[in-house]
């Protein structure tokens, strides 16, 4: 059975303060990585779906984002096929 892999990358919209990123930056600086300017934390979902129709699969994944994976108030996201 054929299947396709899709990656969904979810990050914060511009202007949303990211306390997690700031905390990681602080910890890395304490470890001596002084050159860090900024850290963005993103979440990646790799989803395997059965089917061949890329367009339909992408639409399907978009719906998954809207229904669960993303909160449109804070998140931007990108859907990419993994070849």
């Amino acid at each position: 059975m054929s299947y396709l892999k899709v990656e969904v990358k979810v990050g914060l919209k511009e202007g949303i303060t990211d306390p997690e990123g700031l905390n990681i930056k602080k910890s890395l600086k304490l470890l001596g990585f002084e050159s860090i300017e900024n850290i963005e934390v993103k979440r990646s979902y790799v989803i395997e779906l059965s089917g061949k129709d890329e367009k339909q699969i992408k639409e399907n994944v978009e719906m998954m984002c809207k229904k669960l994976l993303v909160n449109p108030v804070i998140h931007d996201y990108k859907v990419e096929m993994i070849k």
Partner: peptide
């Protein structure tokens, strides 16, 4: 909030608000 019931200005199937990480992390 995730159900879209609060603040619930209009009926939606997705959230129109967020309870996000405390600033103190």
């Amino acid at each position: 909030v995730e159900l879209g019931l609060l603040p619930g200005f209009k009926r939606m199937d997705y959230p129109n608000a967020c309870l996000f990480l405390n600033n103190s992390a």
